[in-house]
Design a protein around this nucleic acid. Structure first.
Lengths: 195, 195
DNA sequence: GGTTGCATGTAAATGGTTACATGATTGT
DNA sequence: ACAATCATGTAACCATTTACATGCAACC
């Protein structure tokens, strides 16, 4: 998905500023589904407005109404009819396969190269990270008012994150023991490996 | 993780050509953890070799040993001591948070904008996709010979994908019904919404 | 005879990240 | 007084994707 479609999607849920769109990818309902940075969002909105897919209402942010203050207006964007049509066209195109980039899993792959302390820190930080995500997701209210798709995606995320968290918690100690054995094989280990 | 570190990681498991490195991100044990394209891998390997972090043995691919055939040599890369050191240094740096980009979930978010047929197709294709992934992962043999980290990541992936698959299968029909209700509200629905 | 898989590589184009610049307000 | 949050925007830089070029062998 390009940033333009992502913006249309957010605006389809309700009016927002560029800043708020960014937030919805960080903490909002679209967090963990896609990413978008300011450097991508602002140019995308400008282009979208040029093409008539979104409209905006500018709100001055300077108190001094006098001269050209350098502070730019705050822009409340809303999706237009053609914007909705463009979004719908994007939704029916078959999705490209998910992209995942997990430094955590890549590092964990080489667990035997890490010291027990580092490995412990890595996993515990991750469990804590999942707890944070899950707490924030569960604190999310007014969900019942949202459309079915949003609720579904929310529950899907909860289910998957809960499973991931549980797997880490349940298998942490085993990994610690096995990684230590791989890193510094015992005499018995070396005999077994030699066979 | 930059592509260079990714290459070092793969080569740490054993010698490989650029082509094989690419494959290991597609079907191999590192699939779904990170991505890397030819256009990223080949330049990365060249640079890595210049810096002495990897070495390679060139194998001519042309039968005609005569003149400069245009066909480039096949290069078997292996990691060097300094390459291993560089990898280890990268592993202890604290990982940046995971990136996920899921067009599927983004589209699902707007389920009520899709026709029932499209929604059904979307979800069923996804379930089938999970089945394919799970089958390939379960067919993976000689896992017992791999270090603890690899086995752990493998099992983590299995657990999470299985949960994701199960959630979709268990909640598919409910979503279909609810999305249809959202898309074309009944009189009762409109009354409830008005309150 | 055509497609698929093996195998490397380059160049152009894309698209995004990062860093910077600016400035007000609110909380500590 | 300082940090954080709100708020927009630009530009340089970077990395990656995509397309292309080349070529052989195996299989159908």
């Amino acid at each position: 998905m390009d940033t333009r479609t992502l913006c249309l999607g957010v605006l389809n849920r309700g009016d927002a500023t560029g800043y708020e769109i960014k937030k919805s990818f960080e903490e909002g309902p679209l967090a963990h589904i896609h990413e978008a940075s300011f450097g991508a969002i602002y140019p995308a909105l400008t282009k979208l407005a040029e093409e008539g897919l979104v409209a905006y209402r500018a709100e001055p942010q300077s108190q001094r109404a006098d001269t050209r203050s350098k502070r730019p207006d705050k822009k409340h964007y809303s999706i237009t009819r053609s914007g909705e049509a463009a979004l719908e066209a994007a939704l029916v195109r078959q999705p490209r396969r998910d992209e995942v980039r997990s430094d955590f899993l890549f590092i964990l792959f080489f667990a035997h190269r890490l010291s027990p302390a580092e490995l412990t820190r890595l996993i515990d930080a991750r469990i804590a990270g999942y707890d944070e995500i899950l707490e924030r997701m569960q604190a999310c209210d007014r969900l019942a008012e949202r459309p079915a798709g949003e609720r579904f995606v929310h529950e899907f995320g909860l289910a998957v994150y809960q499973r991931a968290r549980a797997f880490l918690a349940d298998n942490r100690d085993r990994l610690l023991a096995e990684a230590a054995a791989d890193a510094a094989p015992t005499a018995a280990g070396r005999v077994a490996a030699a066979k």
